[in-house]
Nucleic acid binder design. Structure first.
Length: 302
DNA sequence: AATTTTAGCAACCGCCCCATA
DNA sequence: CTATGGGGCGGTTGCTAAAAT
C-alpha cells in the first residue's frame, strides 16, 4: 500500500510509462531534483519521491552506460566483491555508468552461477567443499587472510590466472606487476591491489611522488595496534589523509602529495592485509613500491 | 500453435543513518 | 534527550519476454 495513510488514490506504482519518464526528465533537467519528496508534485507525477529518485538514478540519468557488461567490468565486479562482499553501491563506484541495482542484478543472474560452475562459493570466493564447515567470519582478520591465501583469485583485472603468489623476504622492495601498470584496463575506474602480510612490525609505502592514490583496508586491524602514520613525509606534506569512511571500513584517501609510513604501535596480531585502491588509472604511479622493513614475509597476490 | 516454465530485470520494501528540530 | 523525515542501501518481489515442453 502507499506508505502514508490517506494518499490512497494518488500514488502510482510499477513500471514507468514513457510519458512519466518524459515529465521526470524535463523537470530534472530544468530544475534539478532538489528535495526528492517534492519532485513528484513539481513534475506533475503521481508517484512518491522515492520512486522518482530510483527511476532517475537507475534509468533516466544521462550518464548511464547501458548495454551488457564487458569482460573487464565483470572481472572488476568479481575482484571488488571478493574484498567488499555484497556492498553493491561500493562496487558500482568502480564501474562508471553502472548502478548498484544493475551490478546486483548482474551478480545474481550471471556471475553467481559462473562462480558456482567453477566450483567457487560466490560468498567467500573460496573453493566449495562438500563439508562446508565455514562459520561466518566474525570480522576476524586471520580467517579472512587465510582464506585469501588458500584460494586466491586475481585482484588485477588483466590477469585472470589463478593466483601466482610470491612470497617476498623481509627488507625487499616490490613493484606493481607490469601487466597492471601498462594495462589500459582501468580507464578511469579504480581498482584494488592487495598486499597481504604476516608478522608485520613495520611497513612503509610510498608512491614516489605526487601521484594520487588511496588506500582501502578491509579487515585490517588499524587502530588496534596498526595505524597508518604519515609523519615520515616531508614537512609540507605531513597532513593526515582524508578519512572518508566509517571506522569499520578504514578507507583513507590521499590526494596529490607524497606520503609514506605505516607502523604498528604494538604487537597484537600476526597477520593482516592492506588493499591499495587506485582512484584513476592515469595516475597509477609506475614506480610505486612497497617497502618491507622488518617483516617475516609478504605475499603479493596477483 | 498453445501452454508452461524459466530468466532477467525494474521497481519496491523495510531498514538504517544522519540531519534537523 | 527524542521525534521526524529524507536519502541511501541491500534483499526481494513480481512482471514480462524468452525458452522449453
Amino acid at each position: 500500500m502507499g506508505h502514508h495513510c490517506c494518499s490512497k488514490q494518488k500514488v502510482k506504482r510499477g513500471l514507468w510509462s514513457p510519458e512519466e519518464d518524459e515529465k521526470l526528465v524535463k523537470h530534472i533537467t530544468a530544475h534539478g531534483h532538489g528535495c526528492w519528496s517534492s519532485v513528484p508534485k513539481l513534475a506533475g507525477l503521481q508517484r512518491c519521491g522515492k520512486s522518482c529518485r530510483l527511476r532517475w538514478i537507475n534509468y533516466l540519468r544521462p550518464d548511464l552506460k547501458r548495454g551488457s557488461f564487458t569482460e573487464q567490468e565483470e572481472r572488476t565486479i568479481i575482484d571488488v566483491h571478493r574484498i567488499l562482499g555484497n556492498r553493491w553501491a561500493q562496487i558500482a563506484k568502480h564501474l562508471p555508468g553502472r548502478t548498484d541495482n544493475e551490478v546486483k542484478n548482474f551478480w545474481n543472474s550471471v556471475i553467481k552461477k559462473k562462480l558456482i560452475a567453477q566450483g567457487l562459493d560466490p560468498n567467500t570466493h573460496n573453493l566449495l567443499s562438500p563439508h562446508q564447515t565455514k562459520a561466518k567470519n566474525n570480522g576476524n582478520t586471520i580467517s579472512k587472510l587465510n582464506s585469501h591465501h588458500d584460494q586466491s583469485g586475481s585482484v588485477f583485472t588483466m590477469d585472470t590466472s589463478p593466483g601466482n603468489k610470491e612470497i617476498i623476504d623481509a627488507k625487499s622492495t616490490l613493484s606493481l606487476p607490469s601487466s597492471y601498470i601498462n594495462s589500459s584496463a582501468l580507464n578511469g575506474a579504480s581498482t584494488i591491489a592487495t598486499f597481504e602480510f604476516q608478522n608485520p612490525s613495520n611497513l612503509a609505502w610510498t608512491d614516489h611522488g605526487t601521484h594520487r592514490f588511496g588506500i582501502l583496508a578491509e579487515n585490517c586491524m588499524w587502530g588496534n595496534g596498526f595505524e597508518p602514520c604519515f609523519d615520515h613525509a616531508p614537512p609540507q606534506q605531513q597532513q593526515q589523509p582524508e578519512k572518508v569512511s566509517t571506522d569499520q571500513e578504514k578507507v583513507y584517501r590521499v590526494s596529490n602529495h607524497e606520503f609514506n609510513g605505516c607502523q604498528n604501535a604494538e604487537n597484537g596480531f600476526d597477520s593482516s592485509s592492506i588493499d591499495f585502491e587506485f582512484m584513476d588509472s592515469a595516475l597509477v604511479p609506475p614506480g610505486m613500491y612497497c617497502n618491507v622493513n622488518s617483516m617475516d614475509q609478504l605475499a603479493w597476490d596477483c
